[in-house]
Design a protein around this nucleic acid. Structure first.
Lengths: 210, 210
DNA sequence: GATGATAAAGACTATATAGTCGTTTTGACT
DNA sequence: AGTCAAAACGACTATATAGTCTTTATCATC
């Protein structure tokens, strides 16, 4: 009997712990999104989370560890938006296009998230790493298929990621026009020399090679 | 006579002052380029400049003022590389192309400079502002000429700047292949839907509109 | 070599932040 | 109600950094 009791107790404890931890991570993400890059102190995070300083250190060894946790959360938020497409869409360019516009639209409707991602892209804190890897994989597949002109997958990924990031910065500084996401995507595909499979006839971005 | 003496004296003083100031700015640029974003303290700058802390405050009111000075220096370094082109090249796309490759090549050969620029692009500390304005002006001209497909000059500037920045980040992380700058430029021009005037026949990036 | 004004130096204070640690609270279980 | 272990608390220390202010060095001029 004791066994069951201890297990339940431990489980409840873990749940409470997880709630508090989540509060702290959210507070960190919030502050980071507000651009408080250098003002991101343990005290500030603890206060924003409504938690004592000791509690912060009960959950994280230091700021770096919190930032890692925030980074993981951002990566997850990226992947959530895109995972379904990953299963349903066979064409790598279609996947990439879906993810590109989907995430840009999220940036428009959730500026806090956008700020967080832009901030995160600065320190190469594995933040984007995994997202970038997915992007590169899609592109490599497209290159293998011959549906893209740029031959270097790293350059191609930089091009797409660069456009995405800078357009997102623009969204944060100006107001996004409604056609923005489409136009940005078209530009990115043209840059790659890619066939947009859904609009091949419209944009003629994929003339026969050679 | 007293007048001349005082003037000379003042001039000499100003020169010594300027030398020390330049040392401090250079040290700041160096540290910033090394990615010491949060470790960029007054003490660290003073030590790197081989100067006492009091001297720092004799020249700058605070860190922010130093960063402004560093920013100005970066803007100048950008413009130095590009100013000649500005006078000699009439076609806005040619100017843009020249500046794009020129600066990318500098990033390859001077990684410290590249790191500095990338860092600087993060805080929208008027750092890029003026460079960005030039870029936008060239693009606006090209749009007016009808030699570019993208119609929104802000989006177009974001696209070019985004590619440039991310490719530069790539240069810092990987090794740059020799064809990189050309390929990056071509991608940027394709993204804009631009006629590359020097290579119109090669890349066919400017089919008749409509 | 003495003078005087500018430039540089560096010890000092005040403050903010990281990280620690003993104490208190919570809440499931008896 | 009482127990107990996990969780949260917050005062405390140590340290690093910003910014000040008095003292010292420099150097053209006399």
């Amino acid at each position: 009997m004791a066994r069951i009791n201890l297990e339940r107790r431990a489980k409840i404890g873990r749940e409470r712990r997880a709630r508090t931890r989540a509060q702290i991570v959210d507070a960190g993400a919030l502050l980071l999104g507000e651009g408080a890059v250098s003002a991101l102190t343990v005290d500030a995070v603890a206060e924003a989370a409504g938690v004592a300083k000791g509690t912060f250190y009960y959950h994280f060894q230091n700021m770096e560890e919190l930032l890692e946790a925030v980074g993981e959360q951002v990566v997850e938020s990226f992947e959530d938006a895109v995972t379904r497409a990953r299963h349903e869409l066979r064409d790598p360019i279609a996947r990439l296009s879906f993810a590109f516009t989907q995430t840009l639209e999220r940036a428009i409707s959730d500026n806090g998230w956008a700020r967080l991602v832009v901030q995160g892209s600065q320190y190469p804190l594995d933040f984007g790493r995994s997202t970038y890897a997915n992007l590169k994989a899609d592109i490599a597949e497209a290159i293998a298929e011959g549906s893209v002109t740029v031959q270097d997958p790293e350059l191609a990924a930089d091009i797409v990621a660069g456009i995405w990031l800078q357009v997102t910065r623009g969204i944060l500084e100006r107001v996004a026009r409604p056609e923005l996401t489409t136009q940005a995507l078209e530009a990115a595909l043209r840059a790659l020399g890619a066939c947009d499979p859904g609009a091949r006839s419209l944009y003629q971005s994929c003339p026969p090679l050679g």
